[in-house]
Design a protein around this nucleic acid. Structure first.
Lengths: 158, 158
DNA sequence: GCTCAATACGTGCAATTACACCTTTATCCG
DNA sequence: CGGATAAAGGTGTAATTGCACGTATTGAGC
């Protein structure tokens, strides 16, 4: 393998922060999805349900949920569809005539409980591969970087 | 040893390594894509072209490219399509009658050169947001974790 | 009350991602 | 040589992602 020589005019994407991050993200997602496959839901769907579960007394609106998931609101709309079709979640009228609330159904709760041990297994597998401190450093890094990125997106105009 | 249990039965996805990683990955991708938008290509496409450029004497096969990009081979097929349609890349017959080689066209080279300063600007913006050592730690973490994940995928049976 | 901006949400479009399954071609071996 | 196996690639299907744009509802100011 050649050293990471820029070789003027031939930059490798290996130095691209975005490329690195996306590569790892894809592989980690694969690991989770493969581990959780028996539960019939993806890790994205698991996270979505988990977030919707958090305040059952006052179900979150779609925009609230999108914010908490760090996702585009319209992406949430699409990601919701298979879960609504499967009957795991339900849209209820919100406080407004505009807003809608996302509620977890009994089937959704059951699916979540079924998936939870598999999710935990995936977490442990990653922990085993990366080491406890590797995971801890990764978490700490994301926790410190994500707010920075999102703050800059809120005020991109200089 | 259990970590701090947040209300047994109400786990937040905040502790999910995969969720964290995907969240950051989405936001960073957004930053890159918005910065690079004037060039007319995404950061994924930029990385694809950059990788295809690396050995112009012997253009890589599709499988080679997929490996280098840490992507599924069939994903590469789909990601290639818009670039082929736009005439930035070209498929040439490979060494085999089976394999195909990916070649960068003159238009592809021009698009790459146009995108490069914008890509660099995005890199710098991330550097500014996360700090030089934040970026360095992130790179180091990915470099050390990605091989671990991929090795475990090659031999998932224990 | 009425106009207008802000809020909440959806759709069209297109790219990104990967699994299951298929065809075609090359190689290995008996 | 000929059949089994491996290698290279594509398609069907479906989920994930977000931008541009549109609709409906609310609230603020006049």
């Amino acid at each position: 393998m050649q050293a990471p020589q820029p070789a003027p005019g031939l930059p490798s994407p290996s130095g691209c922060t975005c490329f690195k991050l996306r590569s790892l993200s894809r592989r980690v997602t694969q690991l989770y999805d493969q581990t959780m496959a028996p539960a019939g839901i993806t890790v994205t769907q698991f996270s979505l349900i988990a977030q919707a579960r958090r305040a059952r007394a006052r179900p979150p609106t779609l925009s609230d949920l999108a914010d908490n998931l760090h996702t585009d609101r319209t992406t949430l709309t699409r990601n919701l569809r298979p879960l609504l079709v499967a009957g795991l979640l339900q849209l209820r009228p919100g406080a407004d005539a505009r807003s809608k609330a996302v509620a977890v159904t009994a089937a959704g709760e059951a699916a979540f409980q079924a998936a939870r041990p598999l999710w935990h297994e995936a977490q442990q597998r990653v922990r085993g591969l990366l080491g406890a401190d590797g995971v801890a450093r990764l978490h700490a890094l994301v926790d410190s970087l994500l707010p920075q990125i999102e703050a800059s997106a809120d005020a991109p105009r200089a």
